[in-house]
């Protein structure tokens, strides 16, 4: 199978978030970046599993600048066969989707994988955009994916249940928990990753359709009110009278 996995990088969740230029820009200084967990744990691993079963190639694709190569090499160490980086800073979901659709349109991928969202901006937009741009069917929030001949059989998480869908190859999928189990790269994988091809492709022209005007930090909690374990009626009173939630 010819599989494409789109990977993005995101600040490590434990990173302390700061802004600069009067809260108009995210301060990347000192931030540790990681592969978006949905892309790493779910999309990439499931794509590798399908390749192990049916044969083929797993290509990872990132739209980003040279600093992203570290994250891309990790995907190769986990088991992708080759990588492509489209050499431009991702400035909006729409422009990223354009780059991906443009790259993928004549490569005959059977399945194009996305994570359900990136954990920094929680957009969940790129996959649907690429699907519409390429006019391919789209299955979103998939928690499992099996391939049966030319048909993909997927489960989608819906409110209070699971929807079972079938779709002909080629298609686009965005993955959620349940899809696969995280794989930790081993020493051999890391060594091999150094020799796998990482192709750098120049971007096409795109325009952004949104602009981040400014950021804001949430109001600090005023501090926890501790209630004694022997005085639980007081907690109920506070929840009722002060917090007004019961």
């Amino acid at each position: 199978m010819n599989l494409l996995v789109c990977i993005s990088k995101t600040p490590d969740t434990t990173a302390r978030i700061a802004f600069k230029d009067d809260f108009t820009k995210f301060d990347e200084g000192g931030i540790q970046f990681i592969m978006n967990p949905f892309d790493e744990f779910y999309s990439l691993v499931r794509a590798i599993e399908l390749k192990e079963k049916f044969g083929g190639t797993v290509t990872v694709l990132n739209v980003g600048e040279p600093a992203n190569d570290i994250v891309i090499r990790k995907a190769l160490a986990i088991g992708a066969d080759k990588a492509v980086r489209i050499n431009t800073a991702p400035t909006s979901a729409f422009s990223v989707a354009k780059q991906i659709a443009e790259y993928a349109k004549d490569k005959n991928f059977d399945i194009v994988f996305f994570g359900k969202e990136t954990i920094d901006y929680n957009g969940g937009e790129v996959a649907g955009m690429v699907a519409a741009m390429m006019d391919l069917p789209f299955v979103n929030l998939a928690s499992s994916l099996e391939v049966d001949g030319a048909i993909g059989k997927l489960n989608r998480d819906i409110e209070g249940g699971v929807e079972k869908v079938e779709v002909g190859i080629p298609f686009i999928v965005s993955t959620a928990k349940g899809m696969a189990e995280q794989r930790i790269p081993n020493m051999r994988g890391i060594m091999m990753a150094k020799r796998k091809p990482l192709e750098v492709v120049e971007p096409v022209d795109t325009v952004d359709n949104i602009e981040i005007v400014k950021y804001e930090l949430p109001k600090e909690k005023s501090g926890v009110k501790l209630v004694d374990a022997d005085n639980i009626d007081e907690l109920v009173r506070l929840l009722h009278e002060e917090a007004k939630v019961i």
Partner: peptide, 30 residues
């Protein structure tokens, strides 16, 4: 939700629209 989430990206491309997912407040105009 699972019905609306897949629509956002697809509609953005089909209508050439701007998108913001998970908004919290009535927007200001600028």
């Amino acid at each position: 939700n699972s019905s609306g989430k897949p629509l956002v990206g697809m509609l953005a491309a089909l209508l050439n629209a701007s998108t913001v997912t998970g908004v919290l407040d009535v927007p200001e105009m600028d």
